[in-house]
Amino acid sequence: MELEAKHISFQYGSDSRQILNDFSLKLTQKERVGLIAPSGFGKTTFCKILAGYEKPDQGEILLDGRPLAEYKGYCPVQMIWQHPEHLVNPRLRMREVLAEGDHLEGRIVEGLGIEPDWLNRYPAELSGGELQRFCIARALGERTRFILADEISTMLDLITQSQIWSFLVQETRQRGIGLLAVSHNLPLLQQVCTRVEDLEQRD
């Protein structure tokens, strides 16, 4: 499969700044692409558009040549967000959060270092890093073809960062999942990705 963003333009409201201007990007299932840019250059916005959370003002998102919006039900493009605490319902136990994933294998849960004891807790009883592992696991369901990782490791210590990234790289490579990694951290992207794009210079 191939995920393509074609000539995307976007701004929040008509009188605000043009955040994305005629931006295009192509991503295959074999690639791990890094996207780098300073704050406020629309990295998160681009991920939201690419995953179908926002509609671009101009341009389109194609998955194998078909508009992404035409894929009903489970979306093959899954986004992992920067702030996991907003992505889990505070009134559901973590067991239910994992159950939202699409046929998750035990291997994924173990690989991300999720302790069995955490499953019975509520989100407020876990740290940000622990919550993020659940969000990553949930996004790695059976029908996922592309992962958009938006600053997913900024709140983690270095050891945990390397643990999570090496799992994610191994998992996506093994299953043929395309990865778009967004970060401020160029050395990290160079380590993880097959190529790195700069959103600022393409603008």
Partner: peptide, 24 residues
């Protein structure tokens, strides 16, 4: 809420989303 939008992307039906995420 972000978790409800994410549930939609994870293929959860509208009824199930209402039941699981809104009723509590």
């Amino acid at each position: 809420a972000a978790y409800i939008k994410a549930a939609g992307k994870l293929g959860m039906s509208r009824f199930k989303t209402a039941w699981k995420h809104m009723v509590p």
